[in-house]
């Protein structure tokens, strides 16, 4: 989830350096607006469901955005690496808010109903598993963790974001009736972003960076 944002020699377009705090501030605008509108009763006839779904959708959007950063750099020379950690953490925060909304507002902290949901409902099982996967990624999204783990182990762990992305779109597809377009579009985007990595790993077996001779 988090990038080695300060890696030296980062290539790419000379984008203006936005302070990372600004990414968080902008990233939290939808959440603040949603909670405010919810309390002011501006979220339509079924405000709890709207809030729950919107928070989940934003988590997925940020997850997709983190996955887009590497292809953007490799294919289009647009380097947003220094924001990847912030965007990845935003995905986690939105997933946490989505989960809290489900647990507290939707289920009213009814333990039995929640456990039954997790055990019996595939989309909730998958959603919970996806959140559980995001936890270690969020916890290790800091420089201290990278130092402690070592870059390779850290990078390996963070490949779990691919699994989380698949889990998130499955969770979305399974919660809706029939096959409406929107979840399928997200699934297609995730498929392209992951397929790109698979393709690249198959085509470019030796990493160009290792060619020292």
């Amino acid at each position: 989830m988090a990038g080695r944002a300060s890696a030296p020699g980062a290539k790419g377009l000379a984008l203006p350096h936005v302070p990372k705090i600004l990414v968080y501030i902008i990233g939290f605008v939808p959440a603040v607006w949603l909670f405010y509108a919810g309390i002011m009763d501006q979220l339509g006839a079924d405000p709890m469901r709207y809030l729950e779904q919107a928070l989940g959708l934003w988590a997925l959007r940020f997850l997709v955005a983190t996955l887009a950063i590497t292809p953007l750099r490799q294919l289009f020379n647009i380097n947003l690496l220094r924001y990847r950690r912030a965007i990845g953490l935003l995905a986690f925060y939105y997933a946490a808010l989505h989960l809290i909304t489900y647990l507290v507002l939707d289920q009213g902290l009814d333990g039995a109903a929640i456990v039954a949901d997790i055990v019996k409902r595939p989309y909730i099982t998958i959603g919970m598993a996806t959140f559980v996967i995001l936890v270690p990624l969020a916890v290790t999204s800091n420089n201290a963790a990278i130092r402690r783990m070592g870059g390779q182990a850290w990078a390996k762990l963070h490949k779990l974001v691919y699994v989380a992305a698949i889990g998130a779109v499955l969770h979305y597809i399974l919660v809706v009736k029939s096959w409406p377009l929107e979840p399928l579009i997200y699934a297609a985007i995730v498929a392209v972003l992951l397929g790109y990595r698979l393709f690249r790993s198959l085509v470019k077996k030796p990493s160009p960076r290792r060619r020292t001779a």
């Binding site: 709890m48 009814d110 109903a113 039954a116 595939p122």
Partner: peptide
């Protein structure tokens, strides 16, 4: 009898409680 993907045991009454609707 649950829907295969979700429970049918409870429901939310639209317009009741807003964000803090009780099932």
């Amino acid at each position: 009898v649950d829907h295969p993907r979700w429970s049918q045991a409870t429901e939310r009454r639209i317009g009741e409680g807003g964000l803090f609707v009780k099932r």
